[in-house]
Structures are given as structure tokens and as C-alpha cells.
């Protein structure tokens, strides 16, 4: 199949890639760029495991073609920690056991990061509705939501 040449920035690094036209951004990240931290749970936009931030907007990498990402700035889980320093959300999820199997975790973290960038002080209900697009089957959401609220508090310096 004829491929398109795209250039994009992922976590601040510039990449060139050849992508098939039907290939999604998720396939491009995972299979072409070998950035496998972004997970596939459904490939239909229903689970949020592939949540990434494209040009400042939270979205599912499975709902965008790779070719559409030409020229885009993409943020993925691999760019969340700065060197050894974890993002407060990552730290909170570790400390409060907000993960069990960990497959939904990268998507949840990206979604939560987008939430806190927009609303530094969300209520529990707002957090639950914002993260409604991120399915988790292990935790029952309790510790996951608590982790996000703890991180929000820490980031506010409260």
C-alpha cells in the first residue's frame, strides 16, 4: 500500500515516518516509532488506553490517522516524567496504589494531566466524569480517582 511521509514531534523529539493511509496514530506510535507506552484496548475510542495529547488536545490515538499527524506535536506517556523526576500524577498513582495491572495507566495519566492543566482543582465528580473515557477493570476507580485528587492538591501547592 502506498505510504505517506510524515514528520511529527513526539515528546519534543522530531520524527520522520512512512505511514499507510489507513494506519492510525496509535499504530504509528506503537509499530512505526516503537513508542509502545501508549496502549491499545479497543481501537474504537471506547476505552481511552491510547489517550495522548495532540497539539494541546486530549484525544484517542486510535481515532486519528497517522497521516493526519503530519506536523503535529504529540505528547505521550513516555514524555511525562522529566528524566528521573516523576510527574506528581505518576507519583500519586504509585503511592496510593491507583494501579493494579497497569494497562490503563498510561491513558489515565495522560487524561488526568490534560484535566489538571485545564482545571487545577477539580471536584471528585468532575474528575470521575472527565475520566469516564478511560476504562479500568481492576481498581473500581476508587484509588485511581483519589490519586488524581492528591496529585492535583500537590500541584496546587495546597
Amino acid at each position: 500500500m502506498k505510504k505517506h511521509h510524515i514528520t511529527l514531534s513526539v515528546n519534543g523529539d522530531d520524527y520522520d515516518a512512512l505511514v499507510e493511509p489507513q494506519q492510525t496514530l496509535l499504530d504509528t506510535l506503537r509499530d512505526t516509532l516503537m513508542l509502545t507506552g501508549t496502549k491499545e484496548g479497543c481501537a474504537t475510542g471506547d476505552c481511552g488506553a491510547c489517550s495522548v495529547i495532540v497539539d494541546g488536545t486530549l484525544q484517542c490515538a486510535c481515532l486519528m490517522l497517522g497521516v493526519e499527524a503530519n506536523g503535529a506535536k504529540v505528547e505521550t506517556i513516555e514524555g511525562m516524567a522529566k528524566g528521573e523526576k516523576l510527574h506528581p500524577l505518576q507519583k500519586a498513582i504509585l503511592e496510593h496504589n491507583g494501579l493494579q495491572c497497569g494497562i490503563c495507566t498510561p491513558g489515565v495519566l495522560m487524561a488526568a494531566k490534560a484535566l489538571l492543566e485545564r482545571n487545577p482543582d477539580p471536584t471528585e465528580t468532575e474528575t470521575r466524569f472527565w475520566l469516564a473515557g478511560n476504562l479500568c477493570r481492576c481498581t473500581g476507580y476508587d484509588k485511581l480517582i483519589k490519586s488524581v485528587l492528591v496529585a492535583a492538591k500537590e500541584m496546587r501547592g495546597a
Binding site: G45, L58, L63, G133
Partner: peptide, 9 residues
């Protein structure tokens, strides 16, 4: 219309 992620598109 779908999740926050979906509404991003």
C-alpha cells in the same frame, strides 16, 4: 458526544 478524548476530535 463520547468522552473528552472523543470530543477532542
Amino acid at each position: 458526544i463520547g468522552s473528552i478524548q472523543v470530543k477532542g476530535r
